[in-house]
Design a protein around this nucleic acid. Sequence first.
DNA 1: TCTGGGGTCCTAGGACCC
DNA 2: TCTGGGGTCCTAGGACCC
Length: 401
Amino acid sequence: MDAFFASIELLRYPQLKGLPVVIGGGRRRVDEALLEAQGERALRFIPLADFPRLKDYVGRGVITTATYAARQFGVGSAMGMMKAAKLCPDAIVLPVDFDEVRKYSRAFKEAIRDVAPLVEDRGVDEVYIDFTDVPGGQRDGGRSLARLLQRSILEKTGLTCSIGVAPNKLIAKMASEFNKPNGISIVQEADLQTLIWPLPCRKINGIGPKSDAKLAALNIHTIGEMAAQDLGWLIDHFGQATGAWMHDAAWGRDMRPVVTDSEPVSMSRETTFERDLHAVRDKTELGAVFTRLCGRVAEDLQRKGYVGKTIGIKLRYDNFQSVTRDQTLAHFTADATTIRQTAGLALKRVPLTQKLRLLGVRVGTLMKAEDAAALQKLSASTNAAGTTAEEPVPPYMDQLF
DNA sequence: TCTGGGGTCCTAGGACCC
DNA sequence: TCTGGGGTCCTAGGACCC
């Protein structure tokens, strides 16, 4: 989806069309005052001059999306708000409306599934579609179907998207970047040398800043240069798995299927404080935040019907260094109190002399709550038969089952 | 006035078991 | 007269993605 979060706000405030607008996180809702003063309904009609500007922003947020007009100023995703404010002080800044984002996310995916059912979720604003067997999918090298999808998404959401069509996910992802916004790009196997090889390695989904820097140090800057390396040489420098993957990627080879359903591995909640907190001096505040995070994770698990076995905490010191601690329970849980207690034990294993800027809680090794319940019953009956030692059922399981 | 939040996957070491 | 070869589970950190 093109500039997804920003485009959603533009539907609500059409008067912002063409202007530099950034959508930013941080819990300081810059438009709270506006909302209070005018009410949600009236906001649509407020004059431009009343919208909050980047230069007035206070807080530690980053930009999640910038409109194309804002990008002209060098402002982009993941950039700190304060830095962006220097580049484009008069850009209008709005907070992410998560409910609205989820709503449009569901809507555009539904529009796609109506046409092509094999869809892999890649986050709120991105999907892979396997349209090998969709009627008409092969016409025009896929262009007809891509156009149909764009039209249908626009009709149902008012939003535009960019589509890359290719023989596999790796190339399709790169192709989708070629014609933004509202573009279609078709890349066939024969186009590898002309369209893919000249690109910087960083364009490969999976090559991040670290790998890119390492490649650059080895004097490899383009995908073509990567493809020219021996498989053995890449393995020597990047290890068996990564080296082999890099070689395949550079040659446009990717056999990964489009995965239409997958189970979550972990659920987490984390927060960056408005100011750095000290474990001792700000003990009360920190404790309250910690408990709230545990409560929210528990809520998420219960709402989605999962239980987990590994409780983890994450914290980030004022120097931005992060540490994590894990603790695995004997039983699955989704109970806030159990999570809080276990996370508390994990927190005790971490040095707390330095100030903290972030605290997070995670629950991993997830299982569907109903499967865990079935498992519980099974082991209970085994116990009754006397084949296994009796295991006490911890109190939080009562609540669950 | 640096640097969000929610995820996945990989690696590597150690404990422990047979 | 020095110490195997699996396998699994757990933990910590880090790269990367949207």
